[in-house]
Nucleic acid binder design. Structure first.
Lengths: 234, 234, 234, 234
DNA sequence: CATGAATGAGTATTCATTCAT
DNA sequence: CATGAATGAATACTCATTCAT
């Protein structure tokens, strides 16, 4: 008399609801092929489940997609070595490098999934409504800014360091390293970003590109105020 | 002797070809709603023209899209104050700010248009075949890197400045400032980025966030080598 | 547990699948109007069914056409008295007549269906892939030639009889009797070929048209070698 | 003040009307690629003439096609060595062979053109209304029958020869030799029919395939009346 | 509550025909 | 009378969604 269970779940341990099974299946398809061109039928077939079952558990395709996207992001986050959350520990330099590596890996895994949804505001809105909406760049950005703020508080960064700007630069660089690949190649099988590129980004953010203090281009005093004198005081 | 003219062109000034009219219409639709979900019929209806007329002027939808995209990019570029191409002129600080402002505005206007095409490589390929394929991020990146390299050559930047990294950071930041908006709203409704955000980015790239030379957090010597000593020599 | 059933099937006896219903409908349309100009929508409308339903049961239009064509050919074959397959039995004369009658009736019913496909080789290829690909003329030709060869082996035909030629003549005559009708009317309105036409063909193939042996037109010897002396030995 | 002339005609000698030019162009296209898939635009482009000009000279596409088809048939006829029209002259044998060769060549050139029209009754009706509608098999059939009738009258054929049947068999064989090629291969570049195939057909029609007079299969008298005794008298 | 066939609006593209110039 | 761009109905096919079983 209890409600029928989908065959595919009986084959399983049986401790997963069909709803969860569908989300997991959609998540896997999103991870493998991105969101674009993903049809309801493909999900149902991959889940070894009837087409219409989706509508017993979700309002529509968009709700399922939002949930699957969410699950995808969370599982990507889980699979990556977390960037250092505690300021003051370890090498500042290495910590920053870890953030960059993390951001690149995160975007590499997540951006393709979002690419197909940019014109589906309802999916994104639903996604935003879910707990832990860390993805999309915003979450990482805030976390990094917070970390940098803490480091600044601890005196490991310049007291006038533009931490929000630095966070934007770093997370943005992660996008920039990933985007060109999305425009040209297959979603999977991307080669890793070379270490020296990440090193250069780290050092450049730390030190900037202005002339070092005391240098002189003309021999007759600085033609322009030294960068360190410009800091925040413009 | 001349063939019939489309009704919509007679109502107009009348000196525009239907081909131009169609490109302009598609361009407007792209600017307003992005490329994704843009149908041939929507373009024809918006242009107040029969469905099939498109194929009298373009090989297929993709050709029209590529041309409209191109027109969109060019008109955006035309509407923006160009960044300084000549190194050594003007304020380095102001030049960088101009680049950032330009990049942000460019991406703000252009990214939504490209977003829908991430999975239609053929349109992108056709677009790349058109003259002035500067957009897409790549062009700006190279141009900025080249500018920075020239400034470094002129001695207006640190001799060991990571110009490629800086370019990546800056262009990436432009993406980062725009991407979150893509996930929430319609392209047409995007507001400009505040000036102080751009200023902060500029200063941070120029000066970095490391502790200034000579500063000391513990009074017992630097716990870690000073940033300027790390430069390129690790 | 079972999914919905098409409304049109409920009105029917109800024991037919929609797939069968679609094939039968297409078959009827082919029988009535031939294959050419037959659209997917026409089939769906005639079957009182939604447009897209076709693609739940067939890969594409061509598969349905090939199957309907196949069904048409089989039902025509079933409706016709089969020609004698065993040589040596019955009247040679009557056997031949039966072959001709069969061929004419077959072509009369089948040629219009194939006519529209002369330039759609893919449908023909799929059709050829189905079991019992006897139609199209080739099958009947081979079968008839084989039958005649057997009769010759049994001594019921002249030892030098041109059985392949005879088969070509007979099957060709079947075409010839049908083709002119294709050019003028609708397939459904074709009337059967009169019996005496078939008789004449039979006798002419059996006996030829040359002068009988021993006859003489001029009284001064044959102006040309007698036909029977020409047999195969020229 | 005289009506404008199409540019393409001025380049010509100028003694051809545009109507004739269009018919000739369509004829050439039909000869090269058949009737199927032949578009009005293709004809106009090939004729180097505006699309709409067709409708100044013909009621519609179908009228032009019927006329072009007619012209095609006539020009094919003109290009072929005519079969012997005069009975009593030459070798009967050779004459028949010439008819077969003619029929095969005629059908090879003409059938592809008709293939695409089998479902356009209006084109065919218009074609039938034109003078000299010899094609389609009917014309050749009648001519051959008439020739055979004359030979019979002259005593060069059996007095009870089934000339209509023989004509049907021969013309039909011509179809049969051509049709299989149409179903499988490219319209052009067909290899010629081997001479011995034509010889066999000729001899078989002349002599039939029945047992020769006086032969006996069982030694106990003919199991069935001899073919020559069956002639016309059943 | 699962099933999966049925639905039908929607997609890009073609092409005979019209008609202002 | 020629022009050739404009027209729009038609084509095969897709896919999110529904619903009787």
């Amino acid at each position: 008399m209890s409600p029928r269970k989908a065959a595919v779940l009986q084959a399983d341990g049986g401790d997963r609801t069909l709803r969860e099974h569908l989300i997991a299946t959609a998540e896997r398809l999103i991870a493998e092929h991105g969101t674009a061109g993903l049809t309801v039928r493909a999900i149902a077939r991959e889940a070894r489940v009837a087409d219409g079952v989706l509508y017993n558990h979700f309002a529509d395709k968009e709700e399922l997609l939002a949930l699957a996207l969410h699950a995808h992001v969370r599982s990507v986050e889980r699979s990556l070595a977390e960037p250092p959350r505690r300021a003051g520990e370890g090498d500042l330099d290495a910590n920053l490098r870890a953030y960059i590596a993390y951001g690149v890996a995160l975007h590499l895994a997540i951006l393709p999934a979002f690419a197909g949804l940019l014109h589906q505001p309802t999916v994104l809105a639903r996604f935003a409504g879910l707990p832990n909406p860390m993805a999309g760049g915003r979450g990482l950005l805030d976390e990094l800014a917070e970390y940098l703020r803490a480091e600044r508080r601890l005196g490991r960064l310049a007291p006038d360091a533009g931490v929000e700007a630095a966070a934007t630069l770093i997370v943005g660089a992660c996008h920039q390293l990933v985007l060109p690949r999305l425009l040209t190649g297959a979603p999977a099988s991307f080669e890793p970003i070379p270490d020296d590129v990440i090193d250069d980004l780290t050092q450049t953010v730390l030190n900037g590109i202005a002339l070092p203090p005391g240098s002189d281009t003309s021999g007759a005093g600085p033609a322009q105020p030294h960068a360190s004198e410009l800091r925040r005081d413009q």
